[in-house]
């Protein structure tokens, strides 16, 4: 391990928070999805770092599975974006309040 695991985790945490901030603060649906991608990658980095720390392949394998899930998720999400743009004419999340109680 070339750096302490703590540093890897700290860096991944920074990435995650940055992604989360984008998800919460941005209004453009595309930007929110980009934020989600960054969060997923932060998790992937943690898995790889853990794999290196414990010298075990499972972390890397999980990172791969994570990538596959992310691919599935993003394909559906982008299809939804297209659908919303087509049906509502916008991708501004603050214009969607169909769940309002």
């Amino acid at each position: 391990m070339i750096v302490p695991l703590g540093h890897v985790l700290l860096f991944a945490g920074l990435l995650f928070v940055a992604g989360l901030a984008a998800v919460l603060l941005r209004r453009n649906l595309i930007m929110i999805l980009i934020g989600v991608e960054i969060m997923l990658n932060a998790v992937g980095l943690v898995l790889v770092g853990a794999s290196a720390y414990w010298r075990h392949p499972s972390g890397q394998l999980f990172a791969l599975l994570l990538m596959a899930v992310a691919a599935a998720e993003i394909s559906i999400a982008l299809a939804l974006v297209v659908y919303l743009k087509r049906s509502r004419g916008t991708i501004d999340v603050n214009r969607f309040d169909g769940m309002k109680g």
Binding site: I2, V8, L45, V48, G49, S51, A52, Q60, A63
Partner: peptide, 8 residues
Amino acid sequence: LLYFLLGA
């Protein structure tokens, strides 16, 4: 590149 550096 980081993954590479971490042995993956």
